[in-house]
Amino acid sequence: MMWNVSIPPPLPVVDGVGPTRLRLPGSGPCASATVGDYVARRFAHLDPREVRRRFADGGFVDDDGVPVPHHAPLTAHRCVWYRRELPDEAPLPFREEILHADDDLVVVDKPHFLPTTPSGRFLRETALVRLRVRLGNPHLTPIHRLDRPTAGLVLFSARPTTRGAYQSMFEQRAVRKVYEAVSALPPGWDPAAPVLAGHPLPHVHRSRIVSRRGELRVRTDRSGAPNAETTITLLGSGVSAAGRPVLHTLLRPRTGRQHQLRVHLAVLGAGILGDRRYPELLPDAPDDHALPLQLLARSLEFTDPLSGRARRFVTRRTLAEAPVRRGRAG
């Protein structure tokens, strides 16, 4: 069987950090500009002289690794590659745990607050870069991702030749994913008759989730056909160690839309504890290490596409706000 093998970037991985690709617009109001002008507008926080210096030093290259000059017409290239520079990145005091590693697959138990891949203000302090350095493998690549606030299992491909085999499992929905979440106990909760927003548990929740570039939250579109499905099962209710009345649920997503589990529980009146985006978008603030998002990627099961063996991985992490005293609360 043959799998698609991704084309390697034109710049090598250095200290675990790979190059970044910037797509260039081939049409529209910016198309008459130069590549350098476009890059300067995209990175307006940089001094234009710094942008010119990086172009002069060959810091932006095309798909073949050839340096792109600052004055190159924007329409002459589909994209440019460059290295991000983030010298003042603060270390994160949370460590990932490797649960499994072989020639093809690495399974990691990711802590809350650690990004899976470089993004925004995080570059070296990400699971991907840390693991590349730790394992000495510049080819390591995530097969799927977890949001930065979410803890639990993430699979990484260890080599390009077999990466497509594992990626196809997710594309074909052949991976059985299980999460758990802790929410504030909904008003009027009756453990003898568990109901969320009028739906008895267990409940299969379906909706249409859409995302727009530049927006921090996804939206639910009631006019279109559902594209997101989650089965929600009750694990219990009670009081957490911190004294919070809480609801503990098991989540089995059939699809993998952005923020799907967070949106579905919020819509049902059981927004996840520690969530600063759903149901309400709260002001930006430093991470609250005392109350991380109470969402955990608990287990992954699949038939290995290389060996045909059944594989199951389970997190060693727990949710701090899970009920320690069960029964009626609130």
Score class of each variant (00 low, 15 high):
residue 12 P to D: 06
residue 14 V to F: 04
residue 22 L to V: 12
residue 25 P to H: 00
residue 31 A to Y: 09
residue 32 S to T: 09
residue 34 T to E: 01
residue 34 T to F: 03
residue 37 D to I: 06
residue 39 V to C: 06
residue 42 R to E: 15
residue 42 R to C: 15
residue 43 F to D: 00
residue 45 H to T: 12
residue 47 D to Q: 10
residue 47 D to S: 04
residue 48 P to C: 09
residue 53 R to L: 15
residue 55 F to T: 09
residue 56 A to E: 15
residue 57 D to M: 13
residue 61 V to M: 11
residue 66 V to F: 11
residue 71 H to E: 15
residue 72 A to F: 10
residue 73 P to T: 07
residue 81 W to C: 11
residue 83 R to H: 14
residue 87 P to W: 01
residue 96 E to S: 05
residue 99 L to H: 08
residue 102 D to I: 01
residue 102 D to G: 03
residue 103 D to A: 03
residue 107 V to Y: 12
residue 116 T to Q: 02
residue 118 P to C: 07
residue 119 S to E: 14
residue 122 F to C: 03
residue 126 T to R: 08
residue 129 V to K: 02
residue 131 L to I: 13
residue 133 V to Q: 15
residue 148 R to M: 11
residue 148 R to D: 06
residue 150 T to H: 05
residue 154 V to Y: 08
residue 154 V to P: 03
residue 154 V to F: 06
residue 154 V to G: 12
residue 158 A to E: 14
residue 159 R to E: 14
residue 160 P to K: 13
residue 162 T to K: 06
residue 162 T to P: 09
residue 171 E to C: 05
residue 175 V to C: 01
residue 179 Y to A: 06
residue 181 A to M: 06
residue 183 S to P: 02
residue 184 A to L: 11
residue 185 L to K: 02
residue 186 P to H: 02
residue 186 P to N: 06
residue 188 G to F: 08
residue 190 D to Q: 10
residue 192 A to W: 00
residue 194 P to L: 00
residue 194 P to H: 04
residue 196 L to S: 01
residue 203 H to N: 04
residue 209 I to W: 00
residue 210 V to A: 14
residue 214 G to H: 10
residue 221 D to L: 05
residue 224 G to D: 10
residue 226 P to T: 08
residue 226 P to G: 07
residue 230 T to V: 00
residue 230 T to S: 03
residue 230 T to P: 07
residue 236 G to S: 07
residue 237 S to D: 05
residue 237 S to W: 03
residue 246 V to R: 05
residue 247 L to M: 07
residue 249 T to E: 09
residue 256 G to N: 01
residue 256 G to D: 00
residue 262 R to Q: 08
residue 266 A to R: 00
residue 268 L to H: 00
residue 269 G to T: 02
residue 271 G to S: 13
residue 272 I to S: 02
residue 276 R to N: 02
residue 277 R to D: 12
residue 277 R to C: 10
residue 286 P to Q: 11
residue 295 L to V: 02
residue 295 L to C: 01
residue 298 R to K: 03
residue 309 R to D: 11
residue 312 R to E: 11
residue 314 V to S: 07
residue 317 R to P: 00
residue 318 T to N: 05
residue 323 P to R: 13
residue 325 R to A: 14
